[in-house]
């Protein structure tokens, strides 16, 4: 052993005496812990406190109470915003999941150039949330945009997609559904994990492709469907970029999602108290829906270990 090696070993053993494994572990997690305390827990707790105040960025706090929550449940504009958000979630989450699963199912076949297709379908979900795509979307659907120009070629006068309350939410929803790529990739991985022998056995038993899909594929990928459902649900409730850039919440508040009201009240109107209360109401709704989703698991989600367990019994 060289002199240098001996020295470093001595240093290490001395250090080890001072810091037992527990303390070393604590040191390792300290950066994360500090980040969590200052950037997550503190803002989280502060917003809960502010939600019971009339905290204004420039005027501070002058009263405490439940008035923000009363305001939320009595203000027509805020209630409309929650209604719009629920509509948006109800439309986009199922359609996005169905589209993602459908495309993943097709791309799971051995088709020539399938890797290019996979990349092509995945690209929108990388670009979709960006400002540039939202601007492009706006250009596509404006009165004299590409969509209406194409309709005009067919002799159809296109509607005012962005300024007619009948269509605006649909256009915003379409942008989200179009970003199905990330869910698709997860579905594709799950589909590849379904054992081939199950299909072979069922084919011998005379099962049709349709029966195979509903009785083998869907149950076996149900944990992944569940995962995608919960993540998409959370993301859809938090959507902001698309409607903010494309319609700014209009026309007539038909695309004003709750996240936008949180932004408007906190950042534009400096009413951090009301903004925090809105954020907490949204958080509670999300928690409840996630809880319902988890509780519903036992009725439709099948985990392979559970199935094996059932088999053994």
């Amino acid at each position: 052993m060289s002199l240098q090696q001996k020295a470093s070993r001595a240093l290490l053993s001395r250090g080890a005496k001072k810091l037992d494994s527990g303390r070393i572990g604590f040191l390792y997690v300290l950066p994360w812990l500090l980040g969590f305390l200052f950037f997550k827990l503190y803002p989280f707790a502060s917003s809960l406190y502010y939600s019971f105040t009339d905290m204004h960025l420039f005027n501070g706090i002058s009263r405490w109470g439940f008035f923000n929550f009363e305001n939320i449940f009595t203000s027509g504009q805020i209630i409309k915003s929650f209604t719009v958000t629920f509509k948006y979630v109800l439309v986009t989450v199922p359609l996005k999941l169905v589209t993602a699963l459908f495309i993943a199912y097709i791309l799971n076949f051995r088709i020539k150039g399938v890797t290019y297709f996979r990349t092509g379908y995945y690209v929108p979900s990388i670009l979709g949330g960006s400002v540039a795509i939202a601007v492009l979307w706006k250009a596509l659907f404006r009165n004299e945009g590409l969509v209406n120009a194409m309709l005009a070629v067919l002799g159809i006068k296109g509607p005012s997609w962005l300024s007619d309350p009948q269509y605006a939410l649909f256009i915003i929803s379409l942008l989200r559904i179009w970003q199905f790529g990330s869910s698709m990739v997860i579905f594709l991985a799950a589909l590849k994990g379904v054992p081939e022998d199950l299909y072979e056995a069922s084919t011998i038993d005379g099962a049709t492709s349709r029966r195979q899909f509903f009785s083998i594929t869907l149950p076996l990928i149900s944990p992944v469907i569940f995962y995608n459902l919960v993540t998409q649900l959370v993301q859809a409730f938090q959507e902001f970029n698309g409607p903010y850039i494309i319609t700014k919440g209009g026309p007539l508040n038909s695309t004003r999602l709750v996240s936008m009201i949180i932004y408007d009240q906190g950042i534009k109107n400096y009413k951090m108290g009301l903004s925090s209360a809105l954020a907490w109401v949204l958080f509670i709704i999300l928690m409840l829906l996630t809880l319902v989703a988890f509780k519903s698991q036992k009725h439709w989600v099948y985990y392979s270990d559970e199935m094996q367990g059932r088999g053994k019994k």
Partner: peptide
């Protein structure tokens, strides 16, 4: 109308 103006997309 504001529907026309908003629909201009500018």
């Amino acid at each position: 109308t504001l529907m026309k103006l908003t629909g201009d997309g500018a």
